[in-house]
Design a protein around this nucleic acid. Structure first.
Lengths: 150, 150
DNA sequence: CTGAATCCAGGCGGATACTG
DNA sequence: CAGTATCCGCCTGGATTCAG
């Protein structure tokens, strides 16, 4: 969106001060910060979906694989291992034949499931908003710019 | 962790029922589901960091770039565009010379900042837990398995 | 100053086959 | 059943250069 050449008044929308207070100056923007690295590990699609799946309780490998549609065995194991290493999930092997492996959230993992559930809720509550915004953005002829594009 | 051959009692840890109720059966595991796709877009490192940065208020391109350490111009613009398309941030261009571009959260973006802030808080509150778990996992000789590895 | 464009390596991640 | 191993395409994302 292009505005008039003169700097407009900020039309300062209200700031979400609570969130600001909590996150600002925590070092999250620094790659070296542990919080940053931790966030990087949990903020990916498969990780979140696995947590979601295990919120429903202890599950076997094959059940998880069936529920999380389209995940390859490689990604499944890789992410499960990562979560286990972080202490978010528990892996229990029963040396029976055929073998059986159960995965479940640890207490730490359960504590993470709440924030992630909130995030998932947000997604579902705003699908239509996002849809509308995206359509509007895509239909914008990107003219309206008065500095003659091209 | 390997348990006794006989299937143990579940030691069923309490289920986080609230989260379960909210997320289960929402179709989140289906790639075709819009909620899934939306989650996929916002659940990545750069996106989250950009939202964090803009929680603090309207900022210029160069300020964001300076704050989000290590981001390349390519990733910065790419993610800013994505967020703008989703209607989460607002882009204001002042055709002055030198050019100036401000970015700020839209109302929709502000509504997302809360869940993301909660997630960031979680990360900082559990750094030591994760550290301990990771150390423990790495020091585990992966023996203790009684089926003689190798 | 704010990007756009290009190049390019690394690794993500899918597909497949195989094992205990 | 629950993975491991291997191959490999392709896309991500960094570095760099250039443009308006």
């Amino acid at each position: 969106m292009v505005l008039n050449p003169k700097i407009p008044e900020p039309e300062l929308s209200y700031l979400p001060q609570p969130a600001l207070d909590r996150i600002a100056n925590m070092g999250i923007f620094d790659t070296q910060c542990e919080g940053h690295q931790l966030l990087e590990k949990i903020a990916n699609k498969w990780t979140i979906l696995l947590i979601y799946a295990l919120i429903q309780g202890k599950k076997r490998y094959s059940d998880i694989k069936q529920q999380v549609v389209g995940i390859s065995p490689k990604m499944l194991v890789q992410n499960l291992r990562s979560l286990e290493r972080l202490g978010l999930i528990r892996r229990e092997v029963y040396p029976t034949v055929p073998p059986r492996v159960d995965y479940s959230l640890t207490q730490l993992g359960e504590s993470l499931s709440e924030p992630l559930a909130v995030l998932g809720e947000w997604a579902y509550q705003h699908i239509s908003d996002i849809d509308a915004a995206t359509k509007k953005y895509d239909s914008k002829p990107d003219a309206e710019d008065f500095w003659q594009p091209k």
